[in-house]
Design a protein around this nucleic acid. Structure first.
Length: 580
RNA sequence: GGACCCGUGGUGCAGCUCGGAGUGCACGCCGGCCUGUCAAGCCGGAGGUCGCGGGUUCAAAUCCCGUCGGGUCCGCCA
């Protein structure tokens, strides 16, 4: 804690037996008042470091949350009245002089962390909510994360460079926030969804190792782990391989973890995308619990069960016991996720060994049943869940089911970081049969797969990679294309003709003509990383002034209508669409 | 665009199935008592358009429809 200056000579939480006898000035908020009559009143003064108890021998006119300066003598508490729960619990302030710095109305809710509050109320009075120790802890932890990241980047020779918030529209990817130009009516800037292109230009400029703790803005629907604006560690480096990028990030992650949870050891593993999908049905699997998927397609290649006649059959053992009602819910959930259904089979025992009890079991041969039990290593009492579809859908749906069932088993004490590598370059076809970029169109294909760009583009792997922590995608990156011949080829596969490419990314393509080094980079979300390190399930708990799911700021009332004149100045006018 | 959950004094909840006077619990607030508490204790008091609108009914917090706000998720997030 910093050296006390100004109106204070000590912080409340810093005082202990070593200060006995000193006259100190503490400043803060009245946390709690315990009145025992005219001659004995306890007042707890709170600052961000903690609380200290003051003994006030006469009734001062004080109320909770008033802001005060207390001048008093640090004294040992009478024997038997110490409070071991408090850092300052062995001492108290005597003979205080109370100076009221600000009065306060009763606050709208308790600051006690034990009370779960409605989030809308918290957000409306966010400045009060932020006084709670949970929020103080979270935002201060986030500050430590930022500091550790900067330290790591500087140690590794990265240079911090700011890039514009007023950027140019790039029609691919996330929806962008538009900013109308006053000086050039009818024209727009956008707020960047990431500094992607800017940082590549910095590589052309020879900065070699760039980083930025960058705000990114995306006008997409909000979730527990998504806000309109979020913060990333954004970095890019030249003359490096994928492994080098992983090392840079690994250094940063280790520095952060050492800063916020000293003593915790972490190991950043690696999975291929195909392995992640086939074992967990997700490209950001939560590996803190088992229940892996099993490919049982072969067992049912000659099945008479129509629901199992599919390109792929995936099976898993439920990690928890399931009631019949719960199974019915799961079947519905599988359907909403796009599967035709979900088969469940209970493993039971008879004289002859293990049997399956299920609506479909009588249509399964003994061989199929036993092979299935063996394949998923099921025991008596287990429930086997199966989805049959094409491979992508089967693993994805069962992966979602797996996550829903296993999440409650995942321990908060584990930090399971790992890389997912070898993503496909394209993630499918659009309605015209043209491949869609999985990452962005500047992602370098895996050199071994160049030949497949024409013949089988969907199986081309890319040099892109994600970093995953406890089932959350922390971030992603790639080695970029820096040769125009490869870039042209990828644009061609993506169906982006030369004219379109020029109009969208002309300045980048131009820049690359003037000597572009091989380069690649990464970005990870600091909101998400901090949330997971804080044990929070929601990034709003790590953001001082977040928006609601519908994009409102309940404290300020934003977004708001503006005067017609303000619109006119921007060359805009309201349409019938606008609300009153 | 869609699914589900929530909305009751300042706060957190119960009441809602099975309609019968806004009834209850805890915290906070105001007043009184109280010389060792620390979520102090005891006594008393104030405080409510049951989110809003409509419908059913003799009667609606409760049942029905709509709507608004908050949350979780699907779509979306190169």
């Amino acid at each position: 804690m910093p050296e006390p200056v100004g109106l204070r000579t000590a912080y409340a939480g810093s005082l202990n037996e070593s200060n006995i006898g000193e006259v100190v000035k503490v400043c803060g908020w009245v946390n709690r008042i315990r009145e025992h009559g005219e001659h004995l009143v306890f007042v707890d003064i709170r600052d961000y470091t903690g609380v200290v108890q003051c003994v006030i021998p006469r009734t001062e006119n004080l109320h909770p949350e008033w802001v005060v300066q207390i001048t008093g003598t640090v004294a040992r508490r009478p024997e038997g009245t110490e409070n071991d729960q408090l850092a300052s619990g062995q001492i108290e302030l005597h003979d205080p002089t109370v100076r009221i710095l600000a009065q306060a109305e009763p606050i709208p809710f308790s600051l006690d962390d034990r009370v779960e509050l409605d989030e809308a109320t918290r957000l409306r009075y966010r400045y009060v909510d932020l006084r709670r120790s949970r929020m103080q802890r979270n935002l201060r932890l986030r500050s430590l994360v930022n500091a550790a990241i900067r330290r790591s980047m500087e140690e590794q020779g990265f240079v911090e460079i700011e890039t514009p918030l007023l950027w140019t529209p790039t029609p691919e990817g996330a929806r962008e926030f538009l900013v109308p130009s006053r000086t050039q009516p009818q024209n727009f800037y956008v707020l960047p969804q990431s500094p992607q292109i800017a940082k590549q230009l910095l590589m052309v400029a020879g900065f070699d190792r760039y980083y930025q703790i960058a705000r990114c803005l995306r006008d997409e629907d909000l979730r527990a782990d998504r806000q309109f604006e979020f913060t990333q560690l954004d970095l890019e480096a030249s003359f490096v391989t994928q492994d080098d990028i992983h090392e840079f990030i690994s250094h940063a992650i280790h520095t952060v973890v050492a800063a916020v949870s000293p003593g915790t050891t972490i190991n950043i593993g690696k999975l291929t995308w195909r392995e992640a999908m086939s074992r967990y049905g997700s490209d950001k699997p939560d590996r803190r619990f088992g229940a892996e998927l099993n490919d049982v397609t072969g067992i049912f290649s000659n099945t008479s069960v129509k629901a199992l006649s599919a390109k792929s059959v995936q099976a898993m053992v439920s990690p928890i016991a399931l009631s019949r009602a719960r199974l019915d819910e799961l079947v519905e959930r599988a359907k909403t996720l796009g599967a035709k259904g979900l088969l469940w089979l209970r493993v039971e025992t008879t004289d002859g060994g293990l049997v399956l009890n299920s609506p479909v079991s009588k249509f399964l041969t003994d061989t199929e049943q036993h092979q299935l039990i063996d394949a998923v290593r099921a025991n008596v009492g287990d429930t086997i869940l199966m989805v049959a579809d094409d491979w992508e859908r089967a693993v994805a749906v069962l992966g979602q089911i797996r996550l829903g069932l296993g999440k409650q088993l995942a321990s908060d004490d584990i930090l399971d970081f790992f890389w997912v590598v070898d993503f496909p370059l394209f993630e499918g076809l659009d309605e015209f049969g043209t491949p869609i970029s999985a990452h962005h169109p500047f992602t370098m294909p895996n050199e071994e797969d160049f030949a497949l760009l024409d013949s089988d583009p969907l199986s081309v792997r890319s040099q892109s990679y994600d970093l995953v922590l406890n089932g959350w995608e922390l971030g992603s990156g790639s080695i970029r294309i820096h040769e125009s011949s490869i870039q042209s080829k990828v644009f061609q596969v993506l169906g982006i003709d030369e004219e379109t490419a020029r109009s969208r990314f002309g300045f980048l393509l131009d820049a690359f003509k003037y000597g572009a080094p091989p380069h690649g980079g990464f970005a990870f979300g600091i909101d998400r990383l901090s949330a997971l390190l804080a044990g929070e399930e929601n990034i709003r708990e790590l953001i001082a002034f977040p928006k609601t799911q519908s994009g409102s700021d309940l404290m300020t009332g934003a977004p708001k209508q503006v005067a017609i004149e303000a619109l006119a100045q921007l060359g805009l006018r309201p349409t019938a669409h606008a609300k009153d």
